[in-house]
Amino acid sequence: MLQSMNVAIPQLGDAVAPRFEAASCFLLVEVAGDNRQRISTVKCSESGGYRRVRLLLFHGVDLLICSGIIAQHRDTLVAAGINVIADVNSTVDEALDNLVSGSLKAAEAPSAATRLTCALSHEQLVTWTREIFAAAGYEVLPCPGEDCFLVDVVAEIECPVCRRRVSVAVCCCAHTYSSQQEIREFHNATATGFDARVYVCPAEDQIVESCREYGIEVIDPKYDRQKLINREPGRLPVLKSVVAGHERASGITAGA
């Protein structure tokens, strides 16, 4: 059962307005349990997010449901004691129904897109990764220096073509903060010293995109284990992407 609270929704026709900072009309609703009381609308003709922050503070709003909102305005609202549920792209009625039914909840992170849904904990991902690389014939080494915390596994194998050692650094998703930031820090930590870098994580679009930007390979724990570890003759197992300096040994197909 929802406690009584004042909810504000930027409104455009029947829909939640696309952007908090540009919304010219706010619907104010007092929600108590299943009831919606004292429905009123307030206009805001001036431009700028902070005028709207002020408006919500003036009306004693407890919760803002909106679609797009700049992170800075969201942080200010939260600091001022107003919870924010963003990225709601629906009609106002649907948003309120979902709030009352409990399917709409305030998220901690700026965007749902940056948070992951993974059934495996970080520890389980590390164990899974070590097993995969070991089973594929890699030598799984102790992690480098104490301060290199973003590298969870280091695996080495002899290149089947040139016989040189191929060194792979692996970071397993820690589920503790924005994965984009983790990928970037992993990239910074391993920019040199490794032939290949792997991020173990559910292969969601944004993750794949970020990794592609930094030349990091994504391995999804849902990938077919046998396809990952089976060594094709003359090829490096596990890795799908091209390893610089070992092009002739790269490029197995390890589909999901």
């Binding site: 696309p18 944004q206 794949v208």
Partner: peptide, 26 residues
């Protein structure tokens, strides 16, 4: 994709104002 940080697979099929949240969407 690069400018918005949103991949094509996430953007295609959605209304443009749900992706861009621009100040002139209204």
């Amino acid at each position: 994709e690069r400018i918005t940080g949103i991949s094509a697979s996430k953007a295609v099929g959605r209304r443009c104002y749900d992706v861009f949240h621009s100040d002139i969407c209204e």
